[in-house]
C-alpha cells in the first residue's frame, strides 16, 4: 500500500512536469500554482502549531521585492536570485519572529497582520525605494549569463519552481517527523508540558517561523519573476488570507495539501474570473465556509480517508 502511494506521488509530480509540453500556454499558471503552493506550505507549517498567520504576505512580498532588487544587479542568475530572495525573507522572519513567537492564538494572527500592513504601507509610500503603487519590474537572467528568450526563461522557471516545491515539500515532511517538528503539534496541544520537558516552545516556533518565512519568500520570488513585476498589493492582508485559505482548502495534514489547495484556489479564481466576473469572492467565501464547517481536514483529509477506507477493505 505504501509503495502504491509513493508511486502515485511520482506519477503526480511527473504528470505535473509534462503539463507545460502538453499545454504550453499553461506554463505561467502552473508556475504560479507552485509559487502559491510554497506560500501555503509556509502557512500550513505554522498551522501545525495551531497558529494562523494573517500576515505571511509580508514574506511573500519580501521575496518578490528582493528578487526585483537582485534582478537589477547585472548577471544575477535566476537560481541565485531565488536562493538569495528566499534567504532575505527568512532573515526578515528571524527578526520579526523574535517578537512574534511570544504570542499565541488571535494575537499571533493580529501581530502578523499588523507587521504585514506596516510593510504594505511602506512599500506604497516610500516611492523612491519601492516604486510606490507602481511597484518594481522583476527580471532574471538565464543559465550562466546566456540571454534566454522569454519562453526559455518561463520554462526554466517552471522547472526550477517544480524542483524547489518538491525539495521543500520533502524537507518539510522530514522536519515534521523530527522532534523539533513534532513539537509544533505538541505546543498546540499542551505548551505547558513542552516547557516542563525543558524545551523552549519559543525556540521551536522561531525555527519553524524562519523556515516558514523562507518558503513564503521563495514562493514570492518565483511569482515575481514569473509575472515580471511586483506591487505593494502582494503584501496586503487579503493576500495573506488567500494563503490561509489555500492551506485550509488543502488541509493542514500533509505537505501535499498546501499544493493541492493552491491549485484548487488558482483554478477557482481563473474559472471565476472568466464566468462569474464579480462574484468570485462570494463563491470563494461559500467554499471556505463549507470546508471549515463540514470538511475541516480539507482535500488532504478527503484523500487520506479514501486510502484508509481502501486499506480497511483490504483487511
Amino acid at each position: 500500500m505504501r509503495a502504491v502511494r509513493s508511486l502515485l506521488w511520482l506519477a503526480v509530480v511527473g504528470g505535473y512536469a509534462v503539463l507545460p509540453w502538453l499545454a504550453p500556454s499553461l506554463t505561467y499558471q502552473l508556475t504560479i500554482v507552485l509559487a502559491l503552493g510554497l506560500a501555503a506550505l509556509a502557512v500550513s507549517l505554522m498551522l501545525q502549531a495551531g497558529l494562523i498567520s494573517f500576515g505571511h504576505a509580508l514574506f511573500y512580498a519580501a521575496g518578490a521585492y528582493a528578487a526585483a532588487y537582485l534582478g537589477r544587479l547585472t548577471g544575477a542568475h535566476v537560481v541565485i536570485t531565488l536562493l538569495l530572495s528566499s534567504l532575505s525573507a527568512a532573515l526578515l522572519a528571524l527578526i520579526a519572529g523574535l517578537l512574534i513567537v511570544r504570542y499565541r492564538g488571535i494575537f499571533f494572527a493580529m501581530l502578523n497582520l499588523a507587521l504585514s500592513m506596516v510593510a504594505y504601507t511602506l512599500l506604497l509610500k516610500l516611492y523612491n525605494v519601492t516604486g510606490g503603487s507602481d511597484g518594481l519590474v522583476v527580471s532574471a537572467t538565464g543559465v550562466a549569463g546566456y540571454a534566454m528568450g522569454p519562453t526559455g526563461l518561463a520554462d526554466l522557471l517552471f522547472y526550477l519552481a517544480l524542483a524547489a516545491a518538491v525539495l521543500a515539500a520533502w524537507f518539510v515532511r522530514v522536519y515534521l517527523r523530527s522532534p523539533a517538528g513534532w513539537a509544533l503539534g505538541a505546543i498546540q496541544d499542551r505548551e505547558i508540558r513542552v516547557e516542563y520537558l525543558g524545551v523552549s516552545a519559543r525556540r521551536v516556533l522561531l525555527v519553524a517561523y524562519v523556515l516558514s518565512g523562507g518558503l513564503a519568500g521563495l514562493g514570492g520570488a518565483i511569482a515575481g519573476i514569473a509575472v515580471g513585476h511586483v506591487a505593494p498589493d502582494s503584501a496586503y492582508w487579503t493576500t495573506s488570507a488567500g494563503f490561509v485559505v489555500m492551506a485550509v482548502l488543502g488541509g493542514g495534514g500533509d505537505v501535499f495539501g498546501a499544493f493541492a489547495g493552491a491549485a484548487l484556489y488558482e483554478m477557482l479564481s481563473v474559472f471565476a474570473a472568466q464566468y462569474l466576473s464579480s462574484s468570485w469572492e462570494l463563491l470563494l467565501g461559500v467554499i471556505i465556509f463549507v470546508i471549515v464547517r463540514f470538511a475541516p481536514s480539507g482535500l488532504w483529509g478527503f484523500y487520506d480517508g479514501l486510502w484508509r477506507r481502501m486499506a480497511a477493505g483490504e483487511r
Binding site: I52, S279, E281, L282, F289, V292
Partner: peptide, 15 residues
C-alpha cells in the same frame, strides 16, 4: 474555525 468562518463571511459580504 471562527477566524476562517468569519473570514468566509467577510468575503461573501464583500461581494
Amino acid at each position: 474555525a471562527q477566524l476562517l468562518a468569519t473570514y468566509a463571511i467577510f468575503l461573501m459580504l464583500e461581494d
